[in-house]
Write a protein that binds this DNA or RNA. Structure first.
Lengths: 192, 192
DNA sequence: ACCTGAACACCGTTCAAGT
DNA sequence: ACCTGAACACCGTTCAAGT
């Protein structure tokens, strides 16, 4: 494994075990057995290292969504599974999720954020299938996908931050996702 | 103005001008003219100071929502205005918004997060009015409000992070909010 | 190319005193 | 009660060298 990759792996591991603040350049260096400033030969700064972790995971998410898209199930079922992947990823790796979807370090820099768009594009393709099947409303695909994507992110983010355990309400994000999909159905048979 | 309040005000000001990382205990102390460690006589640590800023703004948001609720307009119009308040606040004070709705410092500690629930409760009341008027679907109020709240947060958060400027799509969060409300209408007259 | 030790300018936080 | 200076253990980052 190349040094770059070892650094990224170490950073990801520290992220998982100790959260973002645990990912110090010094700790990463120690984890791979270098002196405290050696990482600067591989990454411009701490931000760049974190971005490398994020891009690796954007790619992994993209693959996961692409796999879901190829399943032989109803479009709406694909969408549900894709969103479940999203929620599960966030629950299993909360710090990574925050890095990818809430951290200012990853914010729009230049062309870099293309990687961040790929998972979105996969979900958009699934949403389009749902729209073609009449399972989601006939509005511009990008807008609808943006809304769904944002809603799921919001549910995850608020849940992780403990800002939404209002009474019994939405204890977990998956319940919110279910409701979202249900309410977006263009035609609903009444109740139950 | 009491010293506590001056510290909170200075912290808020630094937050607005330089972002979260600019709110160092030392900078806050300097801003109010104390020595670098004097703030510790007023707040247990940096996190507690940030929480004080957040609670102040949770209260302000609660008031703003409460005012909207008392307007003499259609329920759905109230909801639109309330969500506009939300989006505008986030756009005008992005760092504060992140502190209130995305920062782990504010995450569920103990009873403190009651303050964070008050804006939610105001929105829930408006949503209930909409439901009573038949302008929003007849599902449990807390769940529906949670979904709307989370969706708006997600739109704001993804927009701020530059993670959603997919082509023309959702350039700004307000467009997403519009679409959300439109799609949540239980009865829609076709198109246009 | 890749690694190292020393150093700088910051942090949050604590402590022993001062008024 | 409220404030202070000195100090500790961290950071990110830079630099002059070493192999």
């Amino acid at each position: 494994m190349k040094t770059d990759q070892r650094l990224v792996a170490a950073a990801a591991s520290l992220l998982d075990t100790g959260g973002e603040s645990a990912v110090t350049i010094r700790a990463v260096a120690q984890a791979v057995g270098m002196s405290h400033n050696a990482p600067y030969k591989h990454f411009e700064n701490r931000s760049a290292l974190l971005r490398a972790v994020a891009f690796q995971d954007f790619a992994a998410l993209t693959n996961a969504f692409a796999e879901v898209r190829q399943l032989r199930v109803r479009p709406l079922e694909k969408l549900k599974q894709a969103l479940t992947v999203f929620v599960s990823y966030a629950q299993e790796y909360p710090a990574r999720y925050r890095l990818l979807y809430s951290d200012p370090s990853i914010a729009a820099q230049g062309g870099d954020l293309e990687a961040a768009m790929k998972p979105f594009a996969e979900v958009a393709a699934i949403v389009q299938e749902c729209q073609n099947a009449g399972d989601l409303p006939d509005v511009p695909n990008v807008e609808l996908t943006g809304l769904i994507y944002a809603s799921v992110h919001g549910l995850i983010d608020l849940q992780m931050g403990g800002r939404m355990r209002q009474e019994k309400g939405l204890t977990d994000a998956s319940k919110g996702v279910e409701l979202l999909i249900k309410l977006l159905q263009p035609l609903r048979d009444s109740g139950g």
